[in-house]
Design a protein around this nucleic acid. Structure first.
Length: 417
RNA sequence: GGAGGGGUGCCUGAGUGGUUAAAAGGGGCGGACUGUAAAUCCGCUGGCUAUGCCUACGUUGGUUCGAAUCCAACUCCCUCCA
């Protein structure tokens, strides 16, 4: 199926979001006819979402933008179990407290992408703990469990891998897919939700939900999955030099977020523009034609657009400007990420090593020492060769700060306080 | 409950008494080259108040001049049987 008539699927298709759908034409027709409700589930495995989730969030974003109602489902209940799909081994069980606090962090990421409210097209955020936690075991088995054939569940790729490798799959985890399927049905009953989206690894889980719906008398439900994204060199999305690319600003500064996208590989630029920005397709096509060194300008646009969606236009442009000053002028822009150090400490003098540890550029003095040996450490753009170098007030520049650099790309300002 | 197999650094995975802080690969970081890209090449990849000290091969104890390597108990995981 190449031609979609509904705006939503058409947009998704031309931007490269679609991996698989359960019923192209049926869904396409339905989307044209009425305002639909669709959901994506997010498990609270960390206290913030990261760049790997961004494609899911963009799906919801487009869904709303093309006139439908998205639901962000928080896996407060399913998070108690942990999704075993395609995992080698059981995840450590998370404590309810941990889940609760993660949930709070995860939620914050959404406000920038979706408009929440009570209207017919306003996004909703719901938590499956609301219905999963109060289930009565026997009742649930009779109403829902009887619709699942273990034979078929065992055949799913997502669990087959575990079984083939003779790794244990606990009964607890085995139930994950039942609960996720049940979520779909529950959301249908509560919110008339007809469609579930997710990463391609969720296909099996989603299909289970559709099947369960059939058996429990819901209207026809639909599935749309997005490709599992990696960079051209095969790295998972969302990992970077400094770790995961978190969406929450307190876990990753706006500047560093911008930098992540600025450093996109050439081969990914066009794909990422389509997936992670809302620039019109003809604009993207125009940028796509730029070659050679101009691609660097395109990367800046990519970075600024992606950052603007998450952190706002102003913050994004500030980050772009900071980067421009830092990289193109060699100056140290005021907006580089910074840390504060007590002035008294500074007058006593701080060793380079511990300063770099404080800045988070090294996790131990030993690591900082190795960086010095490797010639990666600079203070105010001067390479440091003496690992016993002391930084004190004399190192403050005219702006009253000290600039730390690790390698070419990581910079931070130290401010006395 | 019975029989067998196994737990090594971020991950995979060698190592079965003595330069073993532990091969190799992956991943990560830094450097060179470039375009803040990729590819390639080079270096690093337990900690510390550091020519030394401390911690480390599931846990605890033991044998030994010396243990990740041998022994015992415990613990967790896997497979098969009941």
């Amino acid at each position: 199926m190449s031609v979609f008539k509904s705006e939503f699927l058409h947009t998704l298709h031309e931007r490269g979001f679609i991996h698989q759908t359960s019923d192209d034409s049926g869904l396409d027709a339905l989307l044209q006819k009425e305002t639909l409700t669709s959901y994506i589930g997010f498990d609270p495995t960390a206290s913030s979402l990261h760049a790997g989730h961004l494609i899911q969030i963009m799906l919801l974003h487009w869904f709303q933008k093309t006139g439908h109602r998205p639901i962000a489902l928080m896996g407060g209940g399913t998070g108690m179990i942990g999704d075993p799909s395609f995992k080698d081994e059981a995840r450590q069980l998370m404590t309810p407290e941990k889940i609760e606090s993660n949930l709070a962090g995860v939620k914050r990421g959404f406000s920038k992408y979706l408009n929440f409210g009570e209207g017919p097209q306003d996004a909703l955020m719901v938590n499956n703990a609301d219905w999963l936690m109060d289930l009565n075991y026997v009742e649930f088995l009779r109403d829902v469990g009887r619709h699942f054939a273990v034979n078929r569940m065992l055949a799913f790729d997502s669990v087959k891998m575990r079984l083939d490798r003779e790794q244990s799959l606990s009964f607890l985890e085995f139930n994950y897919m039942i609960l996720q399927a049940y979520d779909f049905v529950e959301l249908n009953q509560r919110y008339d939700c007809r469609m579930q989206m997710g990463g391609s690894d969720q296909w099996g889980n989603i299909i289970n939900g559709i099947d369960l719906g059939h058996r429990m008398g819901t209207p026809q439900l639909y599935a749309v999955t997005s490709p599992l994204l990696t960079t051209s060199s095969g790295a998972k999305m969302g990992k970077s030099a400094t770790g995961a690319v978190w969406l929450n600003a307190e876990m990753l500064s706006v500047y560093d977020f911008w930098q992540y996208w600025r450093n996109t590989e050439d081969a990914d630029v066009s794909r990422f523009l389509k997936l992670y920005t809302t620039l019109p397709m003809d604009e993207i096509a125009r940028l796509d034609r730029l070659g050679g060194t101009e691609i660097n300008e395109v990367k800046k646009i990519l970075a600024t657009e992606v950052t603007a969606l998450l952190h706002g236009r102003n913050a994004a442009e500030e980050a772009a400007e900071t980067a421009r000053k830092t990289f193109e002028e060699g100056a140290h822009a005021d907006n580089l990420p910074s840390i504060e150090v007590e002035s008294s400490q500074l007058s006593d003098g701080i060793g380079v090593l511990s300063l770099f540890v404080t800045a988070g550029f090294a996790s131990s003095n030993g690591e900082a020492r190795r960086h010095v040996k490797g010639g990666a450490v600079r203070i105010n753009d001067q390479q440091v060769t003496d690992e016993r170098r002391i930084i004190n007030e004399g190192d403050l520049t005219g702006d009253g700060v000290v600039k730390l650099s690790l390698g070419k790309k990581k910079h931070m300002l130290v401010r006395p306080s």
